[in-house]
């Protein structure tokens, strides 16, 4: 299954992970998988499925006997409905769709890991770690932009960066980015070592979400009214930053 993905030209392979519920939890999917004569039948609704309309393949997460498992679903399967492109607060470069599964039937070998299945926690930890790194990158972009702006913009004859209330915000942004980055690296290191990374990855992604929100919010603040105007990228980073808690689903491909 993997060679065409890694060796071929780029094609979108999407994962259907997030569900449109306010208390969505990866370990308790509402989408279900049931055994039926040597195959699996999937039912449920997914949201934030990237590239769902063009996907060359889909990985659908569903609850099988109360355990989250992933299933390879070919596009165009009977009972699979791809909705219109979704509209979000941010992340507008990425096309995502709602996916409805009504009695979608896949063969037994479509389950990742075959008959015995797989440890979905490992996938979740890996994507949480990737999401944490993404959050830090996003935060760093906003921090660097705000820092450069603060040195350039003058009020009452001095750069705003020369005011402690601005300089201290920047100091805290830099410190948070530095600390949370190490948390993400630690989770990645644990994954590389084949060690249990569940707690570290969860901490990294939660820390990353807070960091991205705090830093992007302050970046807008440092630009003042100009930060609110779409001419500068900081309002976009702020919108993207608020999406981080939902990213683990998006980062899963």
């Amino acid at each position: 299954m993997l060679p065409p993905v890694v060796e071929g030209d780029w094609k979108p392979y999407a994962s259907a992970f997030v569900e449109p519920n306010l208390d969505f939890a990866p370990a308790e999917m509402r989408t279900t998988a049931a055994r039926s004569n040597g195959s699996y039948v999937l039912n449920g609704v997914k949201t934030m499925v990237p590239f769902a309309a063009q996907a060359a393949g889909l990985l659908v997460y569903a609850s099988l006997d109360g355990k989250t498992q992933a299933f390879v679903v070919p596009p165009g399967s009977a009972g699979l409905k791809v909705g219109d492109r979704e509209a979000w607060c941010g992340l507008n470069a990425l096309p995502t769709h709602r996916l409805t599964l009504e009695g979608v039937k896949v063969p037994a070998d479509a389950r990742l890991g075959g008959e015995s299945g797989h440890d979905a926690q490992l996938l979740i930890a890996a994507t949480q770690t990737a999401t944490a790194a993404l959050a830090i990158g996003l935060a760093r972009a906003a921090y660097e932009y705000a820092l450069a702006y603060a040195k350039d913009r003058t009020v009452f004859g001095t750069a705003i960066a020369q005011k402690q209330s601005i300089a201290f915000m920047l100091a805290e942004m830099a410190t948070d980015i530095e600390a949370i980055r190490l948390l993400a690296w630690e989770a990645a290191w644990l994954l590389d070592q084949g060690k249990d990374a569940a707690q570290a990855a969860l901490m990294a992604v939660l820390g990353g979400a807070d960091c991205a929100m705090m830093v992007t919010d302050r970046a807008v603040q440092i630009l003042g009214g100009h930060g609110y105007i779409r001419e500068h990228p900081v309002e976009r980073w702020m919108r993207n930053g608020r999406g981080v808690p939902n990213f683990p689903g998006l980062a899963m491909v």
Binding site: D23, F24, A25, A27, T175, A179, L182, Q199
Partner: peptide, 28 residues
Amino acid sequence: TGIPRSRMTNTEREVMDMEILLRSTWLL
């Protein structure tokens, strides 16, 4: 453990935040 924030009790969330702050700062 292992549940999203939206499902945590206030105490669980406070403790989780403490863990995050403590570990990230220690690594720093």
